[in-house]
């Protein structure tokens, strides 16, 4: 019975959305989020949506969300929210930077926050997540635990933040084993989970026993490949993904998106916001390495000790996960 009711609600929601009701005019601050993919990906987009929900619940602001996958649709979505008078608009990904700069020129009062963006321009400001600090720590565990000396990474599309996450993971693994061999495959898709699985299986056939990904929904296939292959372990990305394969995930490089989103919304609400590069790393806990507690006992003490010293050095600035620049 409840399932039928669910379907009716789903159908009603669908038609309400399809009919395109005019937005209700509300006083007070309004916040919008545009994601480049589904918020059911258990990772990058899901985290942003959780952030938006938290803004609604703990700050009591009116919120709205849209999914826009193509550059044209993304610019239109930014423009639509700006035109409707939203005060704060999150463009969730590097790809929103340039469209937001164009829209901002017409709507200078709207604050545009670009997650993984690259620079400040007018009221467009980036949130930079140094995920490489988390993947470096994941890499330490991978490099220390790999029996074959081969590790592999499955990326969705080659974007700068994804490349950085990969580089951090490789450097972390190399810091434990200078002779580690690394592999990388790009799927050219964030949706194709079967491709993620085949890419991972191809690496496993070549001897890879530690896998990491940054491919959102397509990454689910990487977990499945590890589940099917004895002795192969996997690291999650962007969210704590231990639950996707509880006996195969050693840990995840996590971005606490809700915390970062909330911090920005608070500043805008209090009128304290000024456009600047907001950069988040291990120091405030927005980026962290989240080990899977199920493996607490099987990670050697030497690796655990190395994780702690590496984390301290990264926070102190003496260790650079992307290498010397």
């Amino acid at each position: 019975m409840s399932r039928i009711r669910h379907l009716i609600v789903a159908g009603a929601t669908f038609f309400a959305a399809a009919c395109g009701r005019a937005p209700e005019v509300t006083k007070g601050m309004r916040v919008a989020l545009i994601t480049p993919g589904s918020v059911a990906d258990a990772a990058w987009n899901a985290g942003a949506y959780a952030g938006l929900t938290m803004i609604k619940d703990s700050l009591g602001l009116a919120v709205s969300h849209q999914e826009a996958r193509t550059p044209g649709a993304q610019e239109e979505a930014l423009r639509a929210y700006a035109a409707q008078g939203y005060d704060l608009v999150f463009g969730h990904g590097f790809e929103f930077q340039q469209p937001a700069e164009r829209v901002s020129a017409e709507y200078p009062k709207v604050v545009f926050i670009i997650t993984s963006g690259e620079r400040v321009k007018g009221n467009v400001a980036p949130l930079i997540f140094r995920l490489e600090e988390g993947t470096f720590l994941a890499g330490i565990v991978a490099g220390g635990m790999s029996k074959s000396g081969k590790i592999g990474f499955v990326g969705g599309i080659e974007l700068p933040p994804i490349r950085n996450g990969y580089q951090g993971w490789v450097n972390g693994a190399r810091s434990m084993n200078g002779k580690i061999e690394t592999r990388i495959t790009y799927l050219n898709s964030f949706d194709d989970a079967a491709a993620g699985r085949e890419a991972a299986l191809a690496m496993i056939r070549l001897g890879v026993d530690m896998l990491h990904h940054n491919a959102d929904e397509a990454g689910k296939g990487v977990f499945q490949a590890a589940k099917e292959s004895p002795g192969v372990f996997v690291f999650g990305a962007n969210a704590d993904q231990s639950a996707l394969a509880p006996d195969r995930v050693l840990g995840s490089a996590v971005i606490d998106l809700p915390r970062a989103f909330l911090a920005v919304a608070r500043e805008v609400k209090a009128g304290r916001f000024s456009p600047k590069v907001e950069s988040f790393g291990l120091e405030g806990g927005v980026i962290r390495y989240q080990p899977n507690p199920a493996f607490g006992g099987s990670i050697p003490a030497a690796i655990k000790a190395r994780l702690i010293t590496a984390q301290d050095s990264i926070v102190a600035g003496t260790l650079r996960p992307l290498g010397a620049r």
Binding site: D191, D192, A193, A194, E217, K220, Q224, K227
Partner: peptide, 16 residues
């Protein structure tokens, strides 16, 4: 087949 013989879960637009 894609779900039950390969991926083991659903992902939106997974047929790609």
């Amino acid at each position: 087949t894609l779900v039950l013989a390969q991926v083991g879960t659903f992902a939106e637009r997974m047929t790609a």
